[in-house]
């Protein structure tokens, strides 16, 4: 069911990870993604896995919920695994069918690539699970602010993201309801040619768009009524301030990168 999707949702809490400055968290997430590409040997993947496990532990999020965030992209992950397994360069051929060759090296490569994707999904969902969307956008806004002079509309982008994140659950619920309503009128979404299927989506898409526009309209009026007039002269309830733990967190990530780099190039592990 649509309402089961957990990706991009905030899970309130009071853990260390929750309390980190959003800017630190965003930078740390980006650094971790870079670190993923430093990993090469299976041992270094183990280090990454351990790191992710520790972060999940520190965040006190329900483990199952975090793991479920991989679900929406499982097809891509499995596909990655197979493509690498069957097309990888390798001598140890286990099975061959025309140009497809299943090799041990390919399987290992496939596992590594899929693991990279899994780590990437996990760490980004930890970011969104532990950072309320508004705080997250505050962080993005603050990080983008230096680029305002070259024309990056930092506040507008942040406000758009805030609203998008606020309305994702609402629109998912709405989509669910529209699908059910049309299903109750005998609509069939799974049969017919590709063109026919695309046409079958209209009874869902048209009401959904109309509703989104209606919501946008009403929200704009409500925001104006609450004195919204763009980013000029705005203050924030939560002013962002780096604390010791933010520097520690960043230091740990840099250490992780260093460890992975040493393992790869220094020790050849």
């Amino acid at each position: 069911m649509l309402t089961d999707i957990t990706l991009g949702q905030y899970y309130p809490g009071n853990s260390v990870i929750h309390k980190l400055d959003p800017r630190a968290k965003i930078i740390a997430t980006l650094l971790f993604i870079a670190a993923i590409f430093f990993a090469d040997s299976l041992l270094s993947y183990g280090v990454l896995a351990l790191f992710v496990a520790v972060v999940i532990g520190l965040s006190r999020l329900p483990v199952l919920m975090v793991l479920r965030s991989v679900k929406p992209l499982w097809i891509i992950i499995v596909l990655t695994l197979f493509i690498h397994a069957f097309t990888g360069e390798g001598k140890d051929v286990l099975y061959q069918y025309s140009f497809l060759r299943l090799t041990t090296e390919g399987i290992i490569m496939g596992i590594k690539m899929s693991l990279r994707l899994v780590f990437l999904l996990l760490i980004s969902s930890i970011l969104t699970f532990t950072t309320s969307p508004i705080v997250l956008t505050d962080g993005i806004e603050a990080l983008l602010r230096p680029f305002k002079c070259i024309g990056v509309p930092a506040h507008e982008l942040a406000m758009m993201m805030t609203i998008a994140l606020r309305f994702i659950p609402t629109l998912i619920e709405e989509t669910d309801r529209i699908i059910k309503a049309q299903t109750a009128r005998g609509a069939d979404f799974d049969s017919g040619s590709l063109l026919q299927r695309a046409k079958n989506m209209l009874p869902i898409l048209v009401p959904l768009f109309i509703s989104a526009f209606r919501r946008a309209d009403e929200l704009a009026i409500a925001m104006e009524a609450r004195c919204y007039r763009g980013g000029e002269g705005r203050t924030r309830m939560h002013e962002l301030a780096y604390k010791a733990k933010d520097f520690i967190a960043l230091a740990i990530i840099i250490l992780l990168i260093a460890v992975l780099a040493v393992m790869r190039w220094g020790l050849g592990l």
């Binding site: 905030y10 309130p12 309320s132 969307p133 508004i134 705080v135 805030t162 609203i163 994140l165 606020r166 209606r214 919501r215 009403e218 929200l219 409500a222 925001m223 609450r226 919204y228 924030r236 309830m237």
Partner: peptide, 14 residues
């Protein structure tokens, strides 16, 4: 359609 933020207190602060 009048709640802007995804956390109650952040919305009240708007």
């Amino acid at each position: 359609n009048q709640i802007v933020a995804a956390v109650v207190e952040e919305d009240v602060a708007f």
